[in-house]
């Protein structure tokens, strides 16, 4: 047969042709050129939105009093030498001094170390745990158990771990000794190990948060993508790295940023466990700030330190909010 019908020749091309032809014949034709090009002669007065502003007003007023007003106070204080008695203007002296203040710079460095160690462990453990929990049939109970540490006041958690770490009667101290990691000195007593001790407590309390966030992320991994990839020949492991992980990154990023900021926000457990010691081994910046402001009552200097901390937080916050917008827009 020489006269091959086009349909048997290449069905796809023909189908494409048909669709194109359809689109063409159903194409909606141009309407008359609009005679309406000008704007209306006059507008109606706008509708008032007052009602909504009234509802908003009390909350904004409270917030202004407890957040905006203190913020300006903070700036003013940072330019003064303030202690219990009162203040006098010193200009930028507080700031200038910070740069020659070894503990201030150390504080940032320790904070960075602390955050990176906490986050590294939490993300690693948390994601692993999420994957395991996700494939377990006891998921609901496991999640409930995992939530427990987060319900505990960080200060109480600090006290509890203080007890566990205790060099003479702490059970965790005994375990660490028994497996040969520690000699007699308590983990908290040595400048070399105290940082690890406070990291472990943070990991204990907050890894579950990463797990739960990752778990929510895992549930959102599109099943059809996984299945399509499987049918195309991917092994489960490959599937995990090719499909699951990329889908997990956005929520993990949120989790990391949240935890990162929390490391700035909360120092309850560190205060209770070491108070920054031994020496200054665990004096991460917020702890140092606490000491300057509320132990020595150098409120002016404290304010200057607080401002640097706030600025970094605000930058992190901007980042976080930008990441936030995405999964919220998807609304899946």
């Amino acid at each position: 047969m020489t006269d091959v019908s086009p349909i048997s020749a290449n069905p796809r091309a023909v189908a494409a042709q048909i669709f194109r032809a359809r689109a063409h014949s159903a194409e909606v034709e141009a309407r008359p050129q609009s005679e309406i090009t000008n704007r209306p002669r006059s507008f109606n007065p706008p509708m008032p939105k007052r009602y909504y502003y009234y509802l908003m007003a009390p909350a904004i007023a409270i917030l202004a009093f407890i957040s905006l007003y203190p913020f300006f106070w903070l700036i003013v204080m940072s330019l003064q030498d303030v202690d219990i008695g009162g203040g006098e203007w010193v200009g930028f002296k507080n700031y200038v001094k910070l740069f020659s203040d070894g503990r201030f710079l150390d504080g940032w460095w320790l904070l960075a170390q602390y955050s990176v160690m906490c986050l590294g462990l939490q993300v690693g453990l948390g994601v692993l745990l999420a994957v395991v929990v996700n494939s377990s049939k006891y998921e609901k109970y496991l999640v409930t158990a995992l939530l427990m540490p987060m319900m505990m006041a960080p200060a109480v958690a600090g006290l509890l771990w203080l007890f566990l770490y205790n060099g003479t009667f702490g059970w965790y101290h005994w375990i660490l000794q028994s497996v040969g990691i520690l000699d007699n000195a308590s983990i908290l007593a040595s400048a070399n190990t105290a940082m690890y001790a406070i990291v472990l407590v943070d990991v204990w309390q907050w890894t579950p948060l990463i797990t739960i966030i990752a778990l929510a992320g895992l549930k959102r991994v599109p099943r059809d993508q996984l299945e399509a990839n499987m049918v195309d020949g991917a092994s489960p492991l490959r599937n995990f790295f090719a499909i699951t992980m990329p889908n997990l990154y956005p929520v993990l990023l949120i989790a990391v940023l949240l935890r990162f900021m929390d490391n700035f926000r909360f120092i309850d457990s560190v205060l209770v466990l070491t108070g920054g010691g031994p020496g200054s081994a665990t004096k991460i910046l917020p702890v140092y700030l606490f000491e300057v402001a509320f132990k020595f009552f150098k409120l002016g200097r404290g304010a200057a330190i607080a401002l640097t901390l706030l600025i970094v937080t605000i930058i992190l916050g901007k980042l976080l909010v930008r990441v936030f917008e995405k999964p919220q827009n998807e609304k899946g």
Binding site: S25, A26, E27, V28, E29, A30, R31, P32
Partner: peptide, 29 residues
Amino acid sequence: QQWGTPAEIFNHPVNAWVAGFVGEPAMNF
């Protein structure tokens, strides 16, 4: 574009756009 009874709209569309929009299957041009 046009105001009218259904019959007017269908039988006497005022422009090609209305003609193309009203009626299924659509008008051929």
